[in-house]
């Protein structure tokens, strides 16, 4: 089975994630889209590990998961904080930091 297929799948998932980030307004869904993009990257890492015959790619994917977990904790805390003050989870509402 051609490993390129895995990479193409990773690319499709990444692109869908990017669409989610730019199109959705709910901060939590945007966040999920980011997670989707990270997962796509992980898939590419795992594919690379198998094609090269080393485990380094899998370790990298593992680190990505760790970082993603940390990011989710902080990001969700921020979303909750913003929700508390603005009573909304829409990222368009948090637009005070501008020109």
């Amino acid at each position: 089975m051609n490993p390129n297929n895995y990479l193409i799948l990773a690319g499709i998932l990444f692109t869908i994630g990017a669409f989610g980030v730019v199109l959705r307004r709910n901060a939590i869904i945007v966040f999920m889209s980011v997670e989707m993009m990270l997962n796509a990257a992980n898939l590419a890492f795992a594919t690379a590990a198998r094609t090269t015959g080393t485990l380094d790619g899998q370790v990298a994917a593992f680190f990505v998961m760790v970082v993603a977990a940390a990011e989710v904790v902080v990001g969700l805390a921020i979303i909750v904080t913003i929700f508390r003050s603005r009573r909304s989870a829409s990222i368009d509402e948090a637009n005070l930091l501008k020109y």
Partner: peptide
């Protein structure tokens, strides 16, 4: 931009030579 990015990315991947599957 999404389609451009995705299209370019996928076409780039698709046009590479098939990777060898070394196995783990």
């Amino acid at each position: 931009f999404g389609l451009a990015f995705g299209g370019l990315l996928l076409s780039a991947i698709a046009s590479t030579v098939a990777l060898r599957n070394n196995g783990l």
